[in-house]
Amino acid sequence: MIYFSSIIIPLIISIIIFCGLIQNKKVYDIFCEGAKDGIKMTMKMFPTLIGIFLAVGMLRSSGLLEFISNIIGKLVKNFNVPSEIIPLAFIKPISGSASMALATDIISKFGTDTRIGMIAATIMAASETTFYVIAVYMNSVKAKKSRKVIIPALIADVVSIVTAICIIK
């Protein structure tokens, strides 16, 4: 399986380039032409990223997230929900790197094949960093009115986390 996850990206790159070759395209020229767009896109994203990381960093270091997730952890404990994963559920939509660190910590502490370890892994893979995606995508077109896009996105996150907790026994 490790082999499989290492082969997928080189395989895809090779397939793409192979398809270009058999159709007689100047693959290298096309590649370089396209790669230029990457610089423009990153430059465009930079100010948004500064803004998000500043707010997320302040939120994490203030201790507010731990405070809230402790309260919620106590509330849901009666419903057979392990309180250890509540902080992860909270931080997952907000920060990708922080939730990755937290999930790795939970999985190594409780074991990969325990219920808590499995739930943590599922939460990590089942959704994206919601706030980050919304901010980056909205900023890319300079749109001001979001049309409440955050509501379906967040409810979907909750549903996938609740599903993970329910199906893993």
Binding site: I16, C19, E33, G38, I39, M41, T42
Partner: peptide, 24 residues
């Protein structure tokens, strides 16, 4: 992050361009 990001973005933008020009 942006330094890693810019590399990745360029790589996939380049490959995307090849995809768009082929029958893929």
């Amino acid at each position: 992050l942006s330094l890693t990001l810019v590399g990745n973005m360029c790589l996939w933008c380049g490959l995307m361009k090849i995809i768009q020009e082929t029958k893929l």
